[in-house]
Design a protein around this nucleic acid. Sequence first.
DNA 1: AGCACA
Length: 273
Amino acid sequence: MCNWRNEVRTIFVLGFPSDVKERELQNLLRWWPGYEASQMNFKCDQPMGFALFSTVAMAMAARDALQNLVFDADTNSVLRAEMAKKNLFVKRGVAGDPCISFDGSKRMRTGGGDYSPAPYSAPYPSTYLTQPMTSPTPAWAPQTYGLPQPQYDQYGAYVAPQPLPITPSGYAPVQNTKDNPPCNTLFIGNLGEAVNEIELRALFSGQLGFRQMKVLRQGKNIVCFIEFLDVNSAMLVHTNLQGAVLSTSDRGGMRIQYPHNVYVYIYLISSKL
DNA sequence: AGCACA
C-alpha cells in the first residue's frame, strides 16, 4: 500500500477561546507551508481545531509552532497542539481557490484529502507529494529563481542581494476590510501569479525602515511578509503602497495588511523554510 | 487529557 497517504499529517489544536470562529483557525494557518485544510469542531465543551498538511513533517512543524502560542491575550488562551489521531477528512473535487472563494456556509475543504488518485485539487502538484522532504526546491519554498548568487561580506556574513529600487506602475483600489492592529510587520496579498522575490525586494527594500522580508509561494498564491524597524515605518508603507500595482500584477493592486499573527512570520523568518 | 468531519 501507499503508506504516505495514510500517514497522519493532521494536527489537533486545543486552547481556543470559546467564541473562536472557524475562520480564525483558517486565517492563522492559511499561509503555513503545506497547509491544505482545517476545521474547527464545536461539539464538545471546548473548541477543537484540526488542520491537514501536505506532509507529516510540515504538520509537525506547524504543530511545534502553534505550541504554547498565545492566541488571545485577553482571554488567556494558550494553544496546545498535537498530531491528530486521524487525518482530517477532505471532500474530493472541491474546486476553486480556497483563499478567495470562501463560501462561509460550510467549512472550506480544499480537496484532495481522502485520496483516490484522480481529480486532485490540493494546492500542490501531486508530484510534490511524492518528493522527499530534502527536495532542493519544494513548491512552497521562497521564489529565488534567477536571483544572483548569494553575496557575502568580508566577514563571511550573508548579504541579501539588493536589486535596483522600483516604484509601482500604478495604484488600484483594494478591499482591505479585515485588517489587524498595526505592528512592525506587513502581510502582502493579492500579488500576481508571476511575481518574484526580486521584484518584491526591489519595491520594499528601498522603503524607509525596511529590515527583512520573506516570500512564500503556495501553489498559485504568493504572499510576502515585510518586517520594518518600527511600527511607524510599517504604517507608512501600509498607507503609501496600498493597492500598488507591479508589472506582474494580474488581479489589481496588492493588499497590504498587518498580519493576523506575527508569530507565523517570526517562525518563517527564523526557520530555513 | 480532551480527536470530529465522512
